[in-house]
Write a protein that binds this DNA or RNA. Structure first.
Length: 289
DNA sequence: AGTGTATCCTGCAGGC
DNA sequence: TGCCTGCAGGATACAC
């Protein structure tokens, strides 16, 4: 489900209510989303303050006082819902965190203290998602296995070209590999390739510098546009308030097999490789000249 | 270094 | 209506 833009949208919705709050209780309903077992969270979280919320690739990272990190990966159908919405919207609660607004410390006066206690629900129909409590060191090691953030400054067209030049893997598979770029999933990989006019099956290293530049630009534009739209809701994705993302209407190829290409009217094709569907326009993303 | 396959799990759409 | 198959924004482990 959630790729970089969806996770970023959830993060932005959560931040005002969650940053600075203290975790006062943990309720585990579905232990199978906790690879460390239910006690790691039940013992490790209560009493701790959430210092900040961050995103790395498709992971939502709660930086905790103490220190440590609560790392949430939403899998295919994971949601993080804030109390108001969650009562109604959470049909498959897996973990509930009780939060108290930060009353102690700095004394920002009435600043954030007008907030009432809240519940943050991790909801997940299929339970492919995970919540893990990591030390800073464990998190650093985990983060090192992930590729660069595609929206960061350092992710340049040149860097992308260098990274691609040794890989024989199909470019769509390359983009999905979190060790190579972090945060790209099947929707936005396909959309970026459409924008760049590149066949998703092309071996990465056969892209010429002009194509890599187009891919770099296409990827960043697609991701930014999707963040602005609040992500793509096809079925399951919801933001922190339970609302939908509106990027779905702007998808050019993903999920549009048989429909007309907006640019040339050819029917969009669907092919399966690497265990996933790829969508593309056979004309706009056809052979190189 | 690649690919394909299976696995985790549930729900929904479509065909008959 | 029911039953079946296939499909799904992810990640990983395996054999070849």
């Amino acid at each position: 489900m959630p790729e970089l833009p969806e996770v970023e949208t959830i993060l932005r919705g959560l931040r005002p209510a969650v940053a600075g709050a203290r975790i006062t209780g943990v309720e585990v309903i579905r232990p199978d989303v906790l690879p460390q077992g239910p006690d790691a969270l039940r013992r490790g979280l209560p009493g701790r303050r959430i210092e900040a919320l961050e995103r790395r690739g498709k992971n939502l990272v709660f930086r905790l006082q103490a220190p440590g990190r609560l790392v949430v990966n939403l899998g295919m159908t994971g949601r993080l819902l804030l109390s108001g919405a969650s009562g109604q919207e959470s049909r498959h609660p897996a973990v509930r965190l009780r939060l108290a607004p930060d009353s102690g410390g700095g004394g920002t006066g009435s600043g954030g203290s007008g907030r009432r206690p809240a519940t943050l629900v991790y909801d997940d129909v299929r339970r492919f998602g995970t919540l893990e409590l990591l030390t800073d060191r464990e998190w650093r090691e985990r983060s090192r296995t992930l590729g660069p953030e595609p929206l960061d400054r350092g992710f340049t067209s040149r860097a992308l070209l260098r990274a691609l030049e040794r890989s024989r893997s199909p470019i769509r598979s390359w983009l999905l590999d979190q060790r190579r770029v972090a945060g790209v999933g099947n929707i936005y990989a396909n959309e970026a390739l459409y924008r760049a006019g590149i066949d998703p099956r092309r071996p990465a290293r056969t892209l010429d510098p002009v194509e890599v530049r187009a891919l770099h630009r296409g990827l960043r534009r697609v991701l930014r546009g999707a963040i602005t739209a609040g992500g793509t809701t096809i079925r399951d994705y919801r933001n922190a308030a339970g609302g939908r993302g509106s990027y779905g209407g702007r998808l050019a190829v993903y999920g549009r097999a048989g429909e007309a290409c907006h640019r040339c009217d050819s029917p969009i094709r669907r092919v399966v490789f690497g265990g996933r569907s790829a969508f593309f326009c056979p004309l706009c993303q056809g052979e190189r000249t």
